[in-house]
């Protein structure tokens, strides 16, 4: 699952064709949903599929179709080598960042944190037989009610703003 996700993400990054990039992004998101299921977060995985694949990618395809007519010609016109010199600073920066982060991840040894050991000892870990969706619903309406309301207001503001930005200009 991780290899599917990472391989398609690399393809998304290196391909020159925007359409192929968007469609490989589908595969990356499906792989991520699979990883969520492996982490026993089935509700989050379904939400990922519905919102990302159903919503965000369709929006991206729309934006691409509305803005992409002469982009396609540009992409066909300029065939660049695999890693061009212009991208070299980005490649170096990202590789250095990758090395630093991997070093940190290996040295921090996340499996031996105190709170994780404590939660294993208290049997507070998720089990495959557990009904997480019900638990999420109850927690969302009791413990996390304030962030829930805040995110709903934010979502409404964002959607109104998007509609306002993309409306037809009457005058000026």
């Amino acid at each position: 699952m991780a290899f599917i996700t990472l391989g398609s993400a690399v393809f998304v990054a290196v391909t020159k064709n925007l359409v192929r990039s968007i469609f490989m992004f589908f595969i990356t998101l499906f792989g991520l949903a699979g990883l969520y299921i492996v982490c026993l977060a089935d509700f989050v995985a379904i939400t990922q599929i519905v919102i990302y694949i159903g919503g965000i990618l369709v929006l991206m395809l729309f934006a691409f179709m509305l803005s992409g007519r002469d982009n396609l010609n540009n992409f066909l016109a300029q065939r660049k080598p695999f890693i061009s010199v212009k991208n070299l600073p980005a490649v170096i920066l990202v590789l250095l960042f990758l090395v630093v982060m991997l070093n940190m991840v290996v040295s921090v040894d996340a499996d031996n944190f105190d709170w994780i050991k404590k939660s294993i000892a208290n049997k507070n870990t998720l089990l495959p037989t557990e009904n997480t969706t019900e638990n999420i619903g109850v927690n969302l309406m009791t413990k996390y009610l304030l962030p829930f309301e805040a995110i709903s207001v934010l979502l409404m503001v964002a959607l109104v703003g998007a509609a306002h930005l993309s409306r037809k200009e009457k005058k000026v």
């Binding site: 982490c39 989050v44 939400t47 919503g55 870990t125 998720l126 638990n135």
Partner: peptide, 22 residues
């Protein structure tokens, strides 16, 4: 996965997905 009583990780993932959509 190590917080089955509060589900903090999963719930904040849901919030992040909504933020990403916005």
């Amino acid at each position: 996965k190590y917080d089955s009583a509060n589900n903090a990780g999963q719930i904040f993932t849901l919030f992040t997905i909504v933020m990403a959509a916005a």
